[in-house]
């Protein structure tokens, strides 16, 4: 665990079946986004396939969505996998609003993602 106690966003990274699984918790708004973004970009920079677990994220705003998109684009350039798993209803409706629910690959869990590929 490498959490900044100041940040409203907590996270946990597990190495599971060849993926880095980042599990965020809290509200990803203008205050929490810089921290969340740094975590996502560090995973991609370490050249690992990455999935973001958003089950415990109760709120995400446009800045949070933008850092997910940034991670997605960076991974694509590096031919790495980047996906979202287990996302809460709150997050899903914001992604739908941004018409990004079809851009990201979204799965119920990491297992489901591996089976689907």
């Amino acid at each position: 665990m490498n959490n900044n106690s100041d940040s409203p966003v907590k996270f946990e990274i597990d190495d599971e079946q060849g993926y880095l699984v980042v599990r965020f918790e809290g509200e990803i708004d203008l205050y929490g986004t810089p921290h969340a973004r740094e975590v996502i970009l560090n995973c991609i920079k370490s050249k690992r396939n990455t999935v973001i677990d958003l089950s415990a994220v109760s709120y995400i705003d446009s800045s949070g969505v933008a850092s997910l998109v940034e991670g997605y684009q960076l991974a694509k350039n590096d031919k790495l996998e980047f996906g979202l798993v287990n996302i809460s209803d709150a997050v899903l409706s914001v992604l739908q609003l941004a018409h990004l629910d079809k851009v990201f690959t979204i799965h119920a869990s990491l297992d489901e993602r591996i089976q689907a590929s």
């Binding site: 705003d61 446009s62 800045s63 914001v94 941004a98 018409h99």
Partner: peptide
């Protein structure tokens, strides 16, 4: 534009939609 996802622009899009 939606492919230009920087904060601010996307935010205004949300506000207008909602």
């Amino acid at each position: 534009a939606l492919d230009d996802v920087r904060p601010g622009g996307l935010g205004v899009h949300f506000m207008k939609q909602l």
